[in-house]
Design a protein around this nucleic acid. Structure first.
Ligand SMILES: [Zn+2]
Length: 451
DNA sequence: AGTGCCGGGTT
DNA sequence: AACCCGGCACT
């Protein structure tokens, strides 16, 4: 009866599953053999510590060519790996394989690697080989590129295939990344222990997110970094701009995946605050094919709208979307219209970059989040101040599929500031409705006079 | 009351 | 996909 109906209607339905956030099985973390899970766990833990321990100061690696940025060496726990004492030489070369040891020196293309992480075995780019042999020496960290194994979930691959392919080669993202870290329980010696020829090394692909502060703005601003789906989801105005800069851009209305949250509730939640367009990254059509509720979840409806906390945090202080920089300057801050008095409303305040009208991005998701990371590690990528509180991110656990630790829904919501421009309706009047743009006629966001 | 437009329904 | 509209946020 009603109950049944209610059950049907309940937005939460089917969500409970994801709520139990099981740490997404690192799909890519395949076990080739008998490798004990413990090992992996340990590795994960270690890495966790490494990447997250806020305060860790590690003496610079002696001859490391590590840039502070990269490894922030601090991030390594002395005890864990004896990096300093060469006793442990992570560098491992795959025996019998022509693959060269890959050294990701820092920023180099950590980012890519990260992406790769997901599609790590896609073999597309992760094959980055350092030109500079020296780097290998410094190698304190490196690991080896194991044979590109297709072990990972096809899904993942699919997810990132696109991203990977589009990643600019020269992107420098200071994200610490250990592409494939093989950690064995035993001493390092084990690592080299009998090199079997084609045995695929059992490696644990790991990427360590770097501290937010370390992300160079350039990263976000990298022009080439805009991804199609991403761009497509941008507001018309913006997309148009993109179009100018990049030929391949469709002016069509970006569509966002419908959310599962009850629309009413959703709207209440999302509309109670000034609009702030937020990265649609997450609203990118579910790679997985998007039919599964759990998958779609993160592309919820007003997607892109994201609530800011009441505190007047300069939008500009947030992370930037790469695609937005084009618009910088002479853009009015959404907050500006909302609170005239806000000191932050002046673009000048935020370096030379301001967000496009009405939009702010808290974080980009170039790479999937590793489930194992503590929240505050991989989230809250804000340049200056964080609007998102750690606690807020845990509101909803992402389905394992999403791989993102943040779901738009779990983030504070905001909403687009209502454009003050006149739209077709106002311009032409009801009597000339036929002159309206189609969007207006359909009661959709005006295309002709986008905000 | 008027406007803008999201979400969802219909064709 | 095109089209329409209920209903809500906001002015
Ligand atoms: Zn219009």
């Amino acid at each position: 009866m009603d109950m049944a109906k209610i059950g049907e209607a309940s937005p939460l339905k089917g969500r409970t599953v994801s709520a139990s956030i099981e740490v997404p099985k690192p799909s890519r973390m395949r076990k080739t053999s008998e490798e004990p899970t413990m090992t992996e766990l340990m590795a994960a833990m270690v890495l966790s510590n490494l990447s997250c321990s806020p305060v860790f100061h590690n003496p610079p690696i002696e001859k490391g060519s590590f840039s502070p940025q990269t490894f922030n060496s601090n991030e390594l726990e002395p005890g864990s790996w004896n990096r300093n004492s060469h006793s442990f030489s992570p560098i491992f070369i795959q025996p019998g394989s022509s693959n060269q040891p890959v050294v990701h020196t820092n920023s180099e293309k950590c980012k890519q690697e990260n992406v790769a992480l997901d599609s790590c075995s896609s073999g597309v780019q992760s094959d980055f080989v350092s030109d500079d042999p020296i780097e290998v020496d410094s190698g304190t960290i490196l690991l080896q590129r194991s044979t590109p194994t297709p072990t990972k979930h096809p899904k993942d691959e699919k997810n990132n295939a696109m991203d990977v392919s589009e990643e600019p080669q020269d992107l420098r993202v200071p994200k610490l990344h250990v592409e494939e870290l093989s950690i064995k329980q035993g001493s390092p010696a084990i690592l080299h222990q009998e090199p079997k020829e084609n045995e695929t090394k059992h490696v644990l692909p790991i990427s360590i997110p770097v501290l937010p502060q370390q992300i160079p703005l350039s990263y976000y601003l990298a022009p080439g970094f805009v991804r199609q789906p991403y761009a497509a989801s941008l507001p018309g105005e913006f997309r148009m701009q993109l179009a100018n800069s990049s030929p391949h851009q469709s002016p069509e209305i970006g569509s966002s995946a419908p959310g599962h949250m009850d629309s009413k509730i959703h709207r209440h939640l999302y509309r109670s605050v000034p609009y702030h367009k937020v990265s649609d990254d997450m609203s990118v059509p579910s790679p997985a094919g998007g039919s599964s509720p759990s998958t779609i979840t993160f592309g919820s409806a007003p997607t892109g709208y994201y609530p800011f906390s009441n505190s007047p945090i300069p939008v500009a202080s947030l992370s930037f979307s790469p695609s937005h920089y084009t618009k910088s300057l002479h853009v009015r801050s959404p907050l500006a219209s909302t609170s005239q008095t806000s000191p932050y409303s002046s673009p000048a305040k935020s370096a030379s970059v301001s967000l496009p009208a009405g939009y702010a991005i808290l974080r980009d998701h170039p790479y999937p989040n590793i489930s194992g990371w503590p929240n505050n590690c991989s989230t809250n990528f804000t340049v200056k101040s964080s609007v998102v509180q750690p606690g807020q991110q845990m509101q909803e656990s992402p389905s394992p599929k999403t791989q993102f630790s943040l779901s738009p829904k779990s983030l504070p919501l905001g909403r687009k500031v209502r454009g003050d421009g006149k739209k077709c309706r106002k311009v032409y009047g009801m009597e000339n409705r036929d002159m309206w743009c189609t969007a207006c006629r359909w009661k959709k966001a005006c295309q002709r006079f986008p905000d």
